[in-house]
Design a protein around this nucleic acid. Structure first.
Lengths: 142, 142
DNA sequence: CGATCAATTGAGAATCGTTGTCAAAGTGGT
DNA sequence: ACCACTTTGACAACGATTCTCAATTGATCG
């Protein structure tokens, strides 16, 4: 038996939610590890539903959002506004996503990064961030 | 042009829909000419509602989509997936948007266009489109 | 061990943006 | 004016996401 003892009261005063490692949270994380493309929350929910650990849709959404917040999952929007998720690597990157099957390739574009930064600076915009996604139809789907 | 450039032939062969200049379509176009920032379809609908020419919400959506299709209006999505619209200039471009006040500057990046196209081609993706928006805090807001 | 208490869950209701439906009204061409 | 075809709008339908809230779970402490 693993008696996990926390070093006294580590509760950092204010708004940080403890975030307990529950059965369903683990399930979601594992599910995210099981595929490489971007999937919608509903897809992920279905995936879990068929498995041994069904997780409520609301919980899937909650967990997914938490993971995005924590930077462990990438979230982007399809052309019609639906959110799709995927576990992400640490480095900053962009995606080349197949519109029909979702196959994703991570791409980097140092030049683009530089460009956006300079454009922003040129106009006096601070705190710059940007979104860049490329959509297309992959070879197998066309 | 939109910040989402389609390199495909969307509407095939079939003749272009006539697109008649009706009272409500004119009203929407005029409304679009009356502001410089991105607004949601509902905002635009409200705007018209207060004016002398109310237009049904469905029609606003239809018209807006037609305008986007025709390349006369830019459409992009907010962080939470809502579509926002703005009249746009002729050329393909992207936007530098102030996160807090919405002030928008159109920017062009031929290099980026070329880059995305080549990346896609390199991986065998056809029908390429892309989205690129830059967010920051403008001078006045920071 | 058992009580306690807050975090968490899930089923379904509620939102919200957007699109579909369809009868009624408008438009252009003849 | 007549006809064929758009277009419109009120409202229903939809799909994605969030909210509600009672029931459950997990961690902690005595």
């Amino acid at each position: 038996m693993t008696s996990t003892e926390k070093t006294s009261t580590e509760k950092t005063s204010t708004e940080r939610t403890p975030l307990r490692p529950t059965r369903q949270r683990t399930a979601v994380v594992e599910a995210m590890a099981s595929f490489d493309d971007f999937r919608s929350a509903q897809d992920i929910h279905d995936l879990l539903g068929r498995g041994a650990t069904p997780v409520g849709l609301a919980t899937v959404y909650r967990t997914l959002n938490a993971l995005v917040e924590a930077g462990e999952v990438d979230m982007l929007r399809t052309e019609d506004g639906e959110a799709i998720y995927r576990r992400c690597s640490e480095t900053h990157h962009h995606h080349l996503v197949c519109r029909s099957c979702g196959a994703t390739i991570e791409v980097e574009g140092p030049a683009v990064e530089r460009w956006t930064r300079s454009i922003a600076a040129e106009h006096g915009y601070a705190d710059v961030s940007h979104t860049l996604e490329i959509f297309g139809t992959c070879r197998r789907c066309s």
